[in-house]
C-alpha cells in the first residue's frame, strides 16, 4: 500500500450530500478482475453533465475531493475507493462517511478526512472562488490547512500508523499465526463447515 504522510493539492468541491457508492461507481462497472481501470467510471452517471465538478477544466488535476455529509454510504463495493484512487484522488474530506467505505479507503491508501460541515463549506468556497487554492492534508499532525485556516481531524491511531507506513494488513496479522492456531483449537465442535453435505433437507418447511 502506498504510504500517506502529507499531501498538498487542489480540491474538487462536490456540493452534494448522501453520495452513495452506487453514484461513485454504478454497479454495472464492477466487473473488472483487477484493481486497475476503475478510475474511468468514477461518478459515471453524473459525468454526462458538463457542469459536473470533475468535468470542469478549472478543477482538472484536483486530488482532494471535498464532499457533503454521508459520503460513501450504501453498498460495500471497494471499487468505489479504487475508482477514486484510479482517478487520482489521495484524500476525501466530508463531515461523515459510510462505515464500510471509510474502512475500505484506509486500506487502499485513500485518506478519509472527517471535518465538520462548517469547515467543508469553507473549503468549498475556497475551491470555487479560486480553483488554484491548495490544501494540505497532513496525516502526521492530523490537520487540514487551506486559505490560512487549519482544522484537526480525528483518525484511529492504528489506522494512522498503518497508513503512514503503508503496512500490509495480512503480513501484520500473520505475525500472530501461532495465536490464531491456538484459538482454532478451542472452537466448539458443533460449528459448521461448508463441506457439501446432504442437500435433501434444503427445501423450506
Amino acid at each position: 500500500m502506498q504510504p500517506f504522510t502529507a499531501h498538498t493539492a487542489t480540491m474538487a468541491p462536490l456540493r452534494r450530500s448522501n453520495v452513495d457508492t452506487d453514484q461513485i461507481i454504478p454497479v454495472r462497472f464492477l466487473t473488472r478482475p483487477t484493481v486497475e481501470g476503475y478510475g474511468e467510471n468514477l461518478f459515471n452517471d453524473w459525468r454526462d453533465d458538463p457542469d459536473f465538478v470533475l468535468n470542469r477544466p478549472e478543477h482538472a488535476g484536483a486530488t482532494v475531493l471535498v464532499a457533503g455529509t454521508d459520503f460513501g454510504t450504501g453498498s460495500s463495493r471497494e471499487s468505489a475507493v479504487w475508482s477514486l484512487t484510479g482517478w487520482g484522488f489521495r484524500a476525501v474530506v466530508a463531515p461523515r462517511f459510510g462505515d464500510i467505505f471509510y474502512g475500505n479507503a484506509l486500506k487502499n491508501g485513500l485518506l478519509p478526512v472527517r471535518l465538520d460541515l462548517g469547515a467543508v463549506e469553507v473549503l468549498w468556497d475556497l475551491a470555487e472562488r479560486d480553483p488554484a487554492t491548495r490544501v494540505t492534508v497532513d496525516l502526521q499532525d492530523r490537520t487540514v490547512s487551506a486559505g490560512g485556516r487549519s482544522w484537526t481531524f480525528p483518525i484511529g491511531e492504528d489506522d494512522r500508523r498503518r497508513l503512514l507506513l503503508g503496512l500490509d494488513d495480512v503480513d501484520l496479522t500473520l505475525r500472530h499465526l501461532a495465536a490464531i492456531e491456538r484459538f482454532e483449537a478451542t472452537r466448539r465442535e458443533g460449528l459448521p463447515t461448508t463441506t457439501r453435505g446432504d442437500l435433501g433437507g434444503l427445501l423450506a418447511r
Binding site: 460495500s76 464500510i100 474502512g103 487502499n108 494488513d169 495480512v170 501484520l172 496479522t173
Partner: peptide, 18 residues
C-alpha cells in the same frame, strides 16, 4: 457484517479480521 474486498483477501489468507 459486510466487508470490503481487501478484507475478503485478509479473511481468505488468515480467517481473521482486525
Amino acid at each position: 457484517f459486510g466487508i470490503g474486498t481487501t478484507q475478503v483477501e485478509h479473511v481468505l489468507a488468515t480467517q481473521t479480521l482486525p
